[in-house]
Amino acid sequence: MLDAGKSEQQIKSAAKGKRAFDTTLIWQLAILVVLLGSWEILSGRLFDSFWVSKPSLIIGYIYNWFVNGDFFRHLNATMTEIIVGYSIGAALGLALGLPIGRMEKTAKILDPFLLALNGIPRVALAPLFVIWFGIGITPKIVLVFTLVFFVVFYNSYAGVRSVERRYVDLAWVMGARSFSLFTKVILPAAMPYIILGLKLSIPYAVIGAIIGEFIASSEGLGHKIQLETSVYNTTGTMGGIVVLMILVVFLNSLLAWIERRALAWRPPSRSGDAGGQGL
């Protein structure tokens, strides 16, 4: 049977077809080796390793910290701040963003307020949160919350607004009404945006926790980094940063895994991931 565009045979083979051997990973490893290698070699020769440290020293530092030190106490504090702040921020962002996306009037009324609130550089609020909530983990959780909330809120809001009218109209004609319309059409159609919001806000959550710890704290990875910086221990500083980097990569791949399962229906895209960016 002939069909528009592709024939059924073509489609079958395209779905099952094997991909050519992927060399991406090899290139990525090569770049990593070159970067770390030249850092290792040039440090102490071209640059004073006191200022830039070197990979072998950093790995040694992390190993020692891990085995003999207070690694888990700091990790635990930072993770608690991130997880609690992120969960509350994401939950509230979804709980408000999704319904408000469906409420044209409410969205219009709230728009300038949300824009203004989101315009506040949250980092500038950190000292205020210390005054309000002390130097424990509460001010960090609040800071993480304020950063995560808006990213998730705006993305789920935009996701709901982006759902094509034709999908909604057709579902309505097929008998879907408010609840089924929301769960069976609007939510899945908005899911790419929702997941993007959840993913984009991960680096923000980490930034919030670290900045909060920089301002005033007694534990946490940010606290540790600041401690090492204040005694000019660049190896220790970079060790802390590397741990943070690994943490973000881990959290991101966790969400990428969720994304793959939730958005299995999407055609493979040509462009890469939007990903998050640090501040």
Binding site: M1, A4, G5, E8, W265, R266
Partner: peptide
């Protein structure tokens, strides 16, 4: 079990 993008226009 195909998604829409895995089907031809006629399908």
């Amino acid at each position: 079990n195909r998604y829409a993008h895995q089907l031809s226009g006629g399908m």
